[in-house]
Design a protein around this nucleic acid. Structure first.
Lengths: 145, 145
DNA sequence: TCATAATAACTGTATATACAGCCTTTTGAA
DNA sequence: TTCAAAAGGCTGTATATACAGTTATTATGA
């Protein structure tokens, strides 16, 4: 028989709780970025492409723990906006992704807005607590390997 | 000009980091639940409906920090599988959602599998660290209000 | 060398998510 | 009492996400 106590235990679910907080944070950051037309997920992608410079989908997938097929779709949208572009790699199979000038330009507008959201969160938690939390999130992700 | 240092700062993004961990955790839990056909998100919904008993979409939305329109779609899928059902509330506008017998039955199968995934995470982190992390996730979500 | 493995990426399909806007019902104030 | 505002929920549309399966290319071992 299904017991209430069994159900109540699921309230402590790591996945459920982190997804809940993720929804709240995503809405918060997306709202701050609203005027740029960028979503936070897109900002993350652009930034990582900018930092890696000439990166393959596979490399991005490992770095961000995103399925390759998700990246195929997400990059397609960014490419349609001409924020990123890809060229053939030395290998016929691979494609190397980089930011376009338009991509760099939108980042210049978006970064200060992102910084506002980020500052609110970091200051709200306190720096020490915040960076400790980031470490715990990494540890959590590492447990799934 | 776009500086590498500005981009590097975004690597500490609360939203980006939590989304990354969420992807990893979701894949981990979903894989454990695979044989049931349930996704973790669906398990979360079923459990909360079971605990609340006769709950409206609006109440679930507040509890789980999920947009109402998302719940409309998610509940539709669960209803199609006959795991939940809804009846009219005292108010013509509201609908009350409950688990069906089939919904309760699938939970009985899914809960032990969920418990396996959960135990791996909790034991991997250590109980104290884990419950501390849950609190921090709540605090983080609260900062977005 | 050649057949097979592995690698890189893409397509089909499905769920999760949310914003904008809409309809219906209820509430509340003039 | 009546009408505007609020509440509850839904549809249209769009992005995010991943699994299963496919295609094309490269690497590898007999």
């Amino acid at each position: 028989m299904l017991q209430t106590a069994d159900l109540a235990r699921v309230r402590r679910c790591a996945c459920g709780n982190i997804r809940r907080t993720t929804r709240a944070l995503t809405q918060y950051y997306d709202d701050k970025l609203k005027s740029t037309g960028l979503h936070t997920t897109q900002l993350t992608l652009l930034v990582n492409i900018g930092l890696e410079a000439s990166v393959t989908i596979t490399q991005l997938a490992e770095l961000l723990l995103i399925d390759q097929t998700t990246l195929t779709r997400n990059l397609k949208l960014l490419k349609a906006q001409e924020l990123v572009e890809s060229i053939a790699g030395h290998d016929q199979r691979t494609r190397l992704w980089t930011l376009t000038d338009k991509g760099k330009a939108i980042l210049e507008v978006a970064l200060p807005l992102w910084q506002e959201a980020q500052a609110h969160i970091v200051e709200g938690m306190g720096k020490e607590r915040y960076y400790s939390l980031l470490k715990e999130l990494s540890a959590l992700a590492a447990l799934t390997e």
